[in-house]
């Protein structure tokens, strides 16, 4: 994978935001070295406000084929970055604790719970979300797994569905879809409260048997 590959044409030089950060760091250091000023700042609640200026960190990540250069707080999860800042709301929040799988995305080809992934740890990575499965847009051709979910009715309310589909694609790629039993085991991190499990397993087995490239 080419690092910092820019397919979106929007990336600025990685160093630019790093420079901003260094500049801010020196200001913080200066503040730290002048105790009386710092004490006053703390007393006025300014420590938090000053810190706020330093909370933005540079991040370069390729999302659904587009290189993004971002400035984010280090505590932002990949899930909240996708949903609240990049408007990729197909990825869902179901628990924020890595217990339900609704937020499953691929990072460098591996399925991960984006709620347990600090966005900063995806520096230089390729992230694929449910929106990335249909490069032609939501009205374009569907991924075989999406087709299979519709055919087998592998969902009801649809909320866990993006996570199930991302997980299902990875499940086949990992070689963990050789039998319904194996699929059930390797899909158990993705909860469906409507209980579409039996149909989801059918959809995955159908794609696996059909041999389509996933």
């Amino acid at each position: 994978m080419a690092e910092y590959e820019n397919t979106g044409g929007k990336s600025e030089a990685p160093n630019a935001s790093r420079r901003v950060f260094f500049k801010q760091s020196s200001a913080l250091a200066a503040l730290a070295m002048t105790p009386p000023a710092a004490m006053t700042a703390v007393a006025n609640g300014l420590d938090e406000k000053v810190a706020a200026a330093f909370e933005q960190m540079p991040l370069h990540v390729e999302i659904n084929g587009t290189m993004r250069t971002l400035a984010i707080e280090p505590r932002v999860t990949l899930l909240d970055l996708l949903r609240e800042q990049l408007h990729l709301t197909g990825t869902k929040k179901g628990c924020d604790h890595g217990q339900c799988g609704a937020c499953t995305v691929h990072v460098d080809g591996q399925r991960v719970n984006s709620c347990l992934t600090l966005a900063m740890t995806t520096e230089g990575s390729q992230v694929t979300t449910i929106e990335g499965l249909t490069p032609g847009g939501p009205d374009g051709p569907l991924h075989p797994m999406q087709e299979a979910f519709i055919k087998h009715d592998g969902f009801q309310c649809g909320y866990c569905t993006p996570g199930q589909i991302m997980s299902a694609v990875a499940c086949i790629r990992e070689g963990h879809a050789d039998s319904p039993e194996e699929v059930r085991e390797y899909m158990s991190g993705n909860i469906c409260r409507c209980g579409a499990y039996a149909n989801i397993v059918d959809a995955i087995m159908d794609v696996k048997k059909g041999g389509a490239r996933v």
Binding site: R83, G90, E131, L133, P138, I150, Y159, T161
Partner: peptide, 17 residues
Amino acid sequence: DRVDGRLKVTGGANYFA
């Protein structure tokens, strides 16, 4: 097939949040 199937499998279905 479910009439809202395409929206649900593409992430295009918008829930309140």
